[in-house]
């Protein structure tokens, strides 16, 4: 329970009659209802009802032109045994979560620690590291596809000058996902700020006593910094996983632009996943099935699977949320 609620004392009201009190209680209830009404409506219309309908559509064939046709478990059968692409989409999604989330956290943490120790120019550096996070994802992705153009991009020009291997980046099934990871690392600004706040707020006396105990820099990092900011690390991982499950924009733009720079025969949505489905992530496939092929029944089945996974993740988070959501103590602030 939050302290705010506990701290509230019953309002003293002498000589109240019972009916008046009941009326007051009703009024309070009415008030809460009024305050909550936008959310109640919004939740019903844009969450509760669609959730039920997603479940229903997932058992139908539905193309939005004729009414849904009940086909039982056929969509799920295709999902689990027929669809040649979905396994790739799932493993790509897991890959990006498994690689990008820890990398982003480590990198953001590293930059934050360096920043917290910097003597000079902290404001400048903080701005520089934060700025890329502001760049709209579409613009950032376009920029990276250009920078990493295998033939004419400045990055490969540099690599060739240095005599290093020059990968095909967004045009290579092996390098496309790492390219997206690089793009993600460029935009760690938000995470970095959060880590920076946490690192700076680690009580100084903890470091001092660690130093007195003979701990070196690495050890005080391991035994003082990390444990103290662990809730932030948890937060970073949780948000990373959630974002990973929704990964769409960068993959969509990178694949269509990289494919489109040479190819037009496979235009638009058909170049999703380019090259070789290496950037076909679960939300991208769901979009393609639902809103390009208009297999809305099948896309709903995909949505149900996503729901189960995302819900499991969410439950884990909410269970652990006491450690960061309700936290009110002074230690981290």
């Amino acid at each position: 329970m939050s302290r705010a609620a506990e701290a509230k004392l019953p309002v003293v009201r002498p000589l109240d009659r019972r009916s008046a009190r009941r009326r007051a209680a009703w009024r309070r209830r009415g008030q809460v209802l009024a305050f909550m009404s936008p959310w109640l409506l919004g939740f019903t219309i844009f969450f509760g009802y669609p959730l039920v309908m997603t479940a229903y559509y997932s058992f139908t064939h539905y193309d939005l032109l004729s009414s849904p046709k009940w086909i039982g478990l056929a969509n799920y059968r295709y999902l689990f045994s027929g669809d040649p692409i979905i396994r790739t989409a799932i493993s790509n999604t897991l890959w990006i979560i498994a690689v990008a989330v820890p990398l982003n956290a480590i990198f953001a943490f590293g930059v934050a620690v360096m920043l917290s120790r910097a003597r000079r120019g902290i404001g400048f550096f903080r701005t520089v590291f934060y700025l890329p996070a502001l760049v709209p994802p579409v613009a950032a992705t376009l920029g990276f596809v250009y920078l990493l153009n295998p033939a004419t991009g400045p990055v490969n020009n540099l690599l060739r000058h240095l005599g290093l291997p020059d990968p095909l980046w967004f045009d290579s099934p092996t390098w496309a996902k790492p390219s997206l990871v690089l793009l993600g690392l460029w935009g760690i600004g938000n995470l970095m700020i959060i880590f920076l706040a946490a690192v700076i707020d680690v009580p100084k006396h903890l470091y001092e006593s660690a130093e007195l105990d003979g701990a070196g820099g690495w050890q005080s990092m391991r035994w003082v910094t990390l444990p103290t900011i662990s809730p932030v690390i948890l937060f970073a991982i949780v948000i990373g996983v959630i974002e990973g499950l929704q990964y769409f924009t960068q993959a969509y733009v990178a694949s269509t632009i990289a494919a489109g720079s040479a190819a037009s025969a496979t235009e638009g949505a058909n170049s999703l996943g380019y090259p070789l489905y290496s950037t076909m992530f679960y939300p991208v496939l769901l979009y393609q099935q639902g809103f390009r092929y208009f297999n809305m029944g099948y896309a709903s089945a995909m949505a149900m699977l996503l729901l189960v996974v995302a819900f499991a993740v969410t439950v884990i988070i909410v269970r652990n949320s006491r450690r960061w959501v309700h936290y009110q103590g002074p230690a981290v602030r």
């Binding site: 153009n149 295998p150 033939a151 004419t152 095909l168 045009d171 290579s172 489109g260 720079s261 040479a262 190819a263 037009s264």
Partner: peptide, 15 residues
Amino acid sequence: YDNLVRWQASAGDEF
């Protein structure tokens, strides 16, 4: 294969 992909990346848009 890699040579060809690299060449395509500089080939210029079709239309």
